[in-house]
Write a protein that binds this DNA or RNA. Structure first.
Lengths: 171, 171
DNA sequence: GTCGCTGCAAAACGTTTGCATTTAG
DNA sequence: CTAAATGCAAACGTTTTGCAGCGAC
């Protein structure tokens, strides 16, 4: 028998990551983690890669590759699309960035960094992405994984529907 | 306080839908549901649409549009890709087919029909898709949705990793 | 000088669409 | 006769790739 308090089940996050108080220090630490990974692979942290990471830290929402590209262009107009895609891939490999599904079309990305794991509710009307976390859900998920003899690497859990505002506008 | 039996938490499904004992009757009922939907929309159940639905009922795994197209061609070589895509879309609209994400590339589809809701574990090595269901997970998910004031339309929960066999081969 | 990195353009990929033709009631 | 349905090929949006030139150690 499992007992649990009704209160502790679900945590909501604001729709975007909170910026750490010491932004510069945070940015530096991410930069360091990226550089470490690249070095280990025999690669380098170039100006372009740094710019792209920087844009991701500044963004307060989930961005498509194209949106990241737009932001990056503001800092350095010479950077090409291909570099953005290639860099996002590197950031995913080293665990700094996560891909989340969008309703249709292009993928969206978020800076995972040190944030706790969470899942997403995606509004099909306005595209807004809400985040939530439920340790209990994780628990039962782990149970299923164990039962199946599966080795989980990552997962995504996306709920599509209408956010409070869009639902209200409909009625 | 919520109490629950440790046993009843997670149900595994075989990696594909069990075929009903009376296949013909089942097929007929799905066909009927499709036809009802089409009629309501002022559309018709054509030979092509019937063939595509038939292929989906025969498949015992999750198929991409291209794989469905291949199966369909065996029954009627004249059917085009576009018709397959268009028909899958209709089947989704009337709730007979669900789309599930594949690791990369094309979407995969499954015949939802009367099957209970379930989620997926996707093996990144062999592509095998395992299914599981956990009422408790749904419960906490609903809790999160309620807290957020969200109106859920559908969701998907996909765990990527290695299945038992592929994991064994690695070690 | 080497090897990685880049931007560009072209290719690849899965999916959708426009259109002329066929089909069914 | 009309409206829907089809197959084809072209278009689409996103992502990947080939390649020649650039740049950093």
């Amino acid at each position: 028998m499992i007992r649990l308090r009704k209160d502790a089940e679900v945590t909501l996050f604001p729709s975007h990551a909170q910026k750490p108080a010491d932004f510069q220090h945070w940015l530096g630490s991410l930069r360091g983690r990226f550089e470490d990974y690249l070095t280990k692979q025999g690669l380098n942290l170039t100006k372009q890669r740094e710019t792209i990471l920087h844009c991701l830290t500044e963004a307060d929402q989930h961005l498509t590759a194209e949106q990241i590209y737009d932001q990056v262009k503001k800092k350095d107009a010479s950077i090409g699309r291909a570099t953005v895609f290639r860099t996002i891939k590197l950031l995913q490999e080293c665990g700094l960035v996560d891909e989340i599904a969008s309703l249709r079309g292009s993928a969206k990305f978020e800076l995972k960094a040190d944030r706790p794991h969470h899942d997403h509710m995606i509004c099909v009307e306005c595209g807004r992405i809400l985040e939530f976390q439920s340790p209990m859900m994780e628990k039962f998920q782990d149970e299923a994984i164990r039962k199946q003899g599966f080795t989980a690497l990552w997962h995504r859990h996306e709920i599509f529907g209408r956010c409070k505002l869009c639902q209200k506008q409909r009625s």
